[in-house]
Amino acid sequence: MQKIIKITTSIFFIFILVVFYISLNNTSDYDTENLVGIKLEKIKLESFENKKYLTNENLKKNNFTLINFWASWCAPCRVEHPFLMELSQEKNLKILGVNFKDKRNNALNFLDNLGNPYHYLAKDDQGKQSIGFGIYGIPESILIDKDFIVIKKFVGPLNLEDLNEIKKITNLL
């Protein structure tokens, strides 16, 4: 009996200390990786140009769609913009821009000055739709495939590495 208690106690402490050691080398930062692999079934976004809605119906013929959340007031969005311009040339990829909590005129100016990489443009005035996409700060981008399954999520501005990765994924087809 005593022996069992001794062994379990020792194992218990060793277990705790080992887990502490493992977690030292982990980052405790939050990410939204869990959205990857999930199907975005009910996409419904207000169009930027008119009163209509953008839904899964509009996107279903695309091989890949990159949903990009942006705003004219967001400084990092300017940083990633050249990469989006480059991606807009990709043949297997269409880009859906969601203008986030922005003023219409500012958004239009932004696109006039820096170019418009978006094949579709939607708006989310109050930011409510973005919650359905698991967005918590812009810029964020979500890459989905033909079946609306999330392949990858990019939090923060896209960089060169992300650009190449997206190109690689879309060109595999």
């Binding site: 705790i16 887990v19 502490f20 493992i22 977690s23 982990n26 405790s28």
Partner: peptide
């Protein structure tokens, strides 16, 4: 306090 750490590590 520890449970989230353990879940994350394991």
């Amino acid at each position: 306090t520890l449970y989230p750490i353990f879940l994350d590590a394991l």
